[in-house]
Amino acid sequence: MSFTLKINGTSHEVDVDDDTPLLWVLRDVLGMTGTKFGCGAALCGACTVHIDGAPTRSCITTIDTVGDSAITTIEAVGASPAGRHIQQAWLDLEVVQCGYCQSGQIMSAAALISDNKTPSDDDIDNAMSGNICRCGTYARIREAIKHAATAYAGEAK
């Protein structure tokens, strides 16, 4: 079946089965490999994208459910103020190790601070619990989210 997807502000036409997960359309059909495969079962968060701003696991989101929603991926998250602040905080606080999970971490974190510029530790736990990092960067992720949220809130004033 043919689907028209709105990804990072651009329309893309793809011809795949309607139960194809969005992840594989992004990675293998459209070559947008920033979104990562980790588990295929919404258990690790590596494949997180935004669909109409909401953090969504693309590995279990079939293409027929996306409709004309706006999809944002790691390649374009820096275009939003929240995404840009998160990326900068990730660099400033040296969050990254192997980096493989960080696309998903950044997408979840950007969605969090776009809605909540003063996230508590509980808010961070709730927003980030679905994102596994085997390198163990969690402490720095937490600090970087706070750092980014503060910078974002300061800018918004």
Partner: peptide, 19 residues
């Protein structure tokens, strides 16, 4: 010193084997 391998790891441009 700041890490030299991380810029591409925050914007999706870093290339792992799977990419």
């Amino acid at each position: 010193a700041k890490r030299l391998d991380v810029a591409g790891k925050v914007d999706g441009t870093a290339t792992y084997g799977i990419d």
